[in-house]
């Protein structure tokens, strides 16, 4: 097993995936999993690949960087021993919640909320900002999809987040994920 993690960042344009994938292929590597996202016009991708035994992360990184010159990408390749973190090894039973912060963007908003979630042993599984500016509070929304261990006392977590909300003049809601799913999906 010769696993690597590849990160690709840069301005979005056609051909990034085509190029990256074909270079991995040239190295006889197999992409085992991948995910890409767009943040405004910024492209970001994370790929997990298995390389041939005689290949290495350094060689692949060099090829990727050489062959994508001109596309203005930041590409890194790291050797990866698939050792899950403590959290994943001893994952407690969790409940999925959605934390939404409604109100204007403020410096420190993510740090404060994420810090408080961490303090309570809560894992963030996804985070997204929906900032459109303007006065409509729903156009300035930060969404944290989180896994809350069963042992967490929800009222304590809510109180702590409420304190942040009043300090930053935001509204913070903590709702079980199921409510979003049940009103949005046909299948449930």
């Amino acid at each position: 097993m010769n696993k690597v993690l590849i990160s690709v960042l840069g301005s979005d344009q056609p051909g990034i995936m085509a190029k990256v994938a074909s270079i991995i292929n040239q190295h006889n590597g197999n992409i085992e999993n991948l995910s890409q996202t767009l943040l405004d016009n910024v492209f970001g991708a994370l790929l997990m690949a298995n390389l041939a035994e005689d290949d290495s992360a350094e060689k692949l990184e060099q090829s990727l960087q050489d062959q994508t010159r001109g596309m203005n990408l930041y590409i890194r390749v790291h050797p990866w021993q698939a050792e899950p973190s403590d959290w994943h090894q001893n994952k407690p039973e969790t409940q999925p919640y959605i934390v939404t912060a409604i109100g204007p963007d403020r410096q420190g908003l993510v740090a404060e909320i994420a810090g408080e979630l961490f303090k309570h042993g809560v894992n963030i599984s996804n985070i997204q900002a929906i900032f459109k500016g303007g006065k409509n509070p729903m156009d300035n929304l930060m969404v944290f999809e989180v896994d809350v261990p069963r042992a967490v006392v929800m009222n304590d977590l809510r109180d702590a987040l409420d304190a942040i909300a009043s300090r930053l003049e935001l509204e913070i809601n903590v709702q079980h994920r199921r409510i979003f799913e049940s009103v949005s999906n046909i299948l449930n």
Partner: peptide, 17 residues
């Protein structure tokens, strides 16, 4: 992952409507 539309429409129903 929930889409922004799913999140916003659910929040709107509860908060504003």
């Amino acid at each position: 992952m929930l889409t922004p539309k799913e999140i916003i429409s659910t929040l709107q129903m509860v908060r504003e409507e």
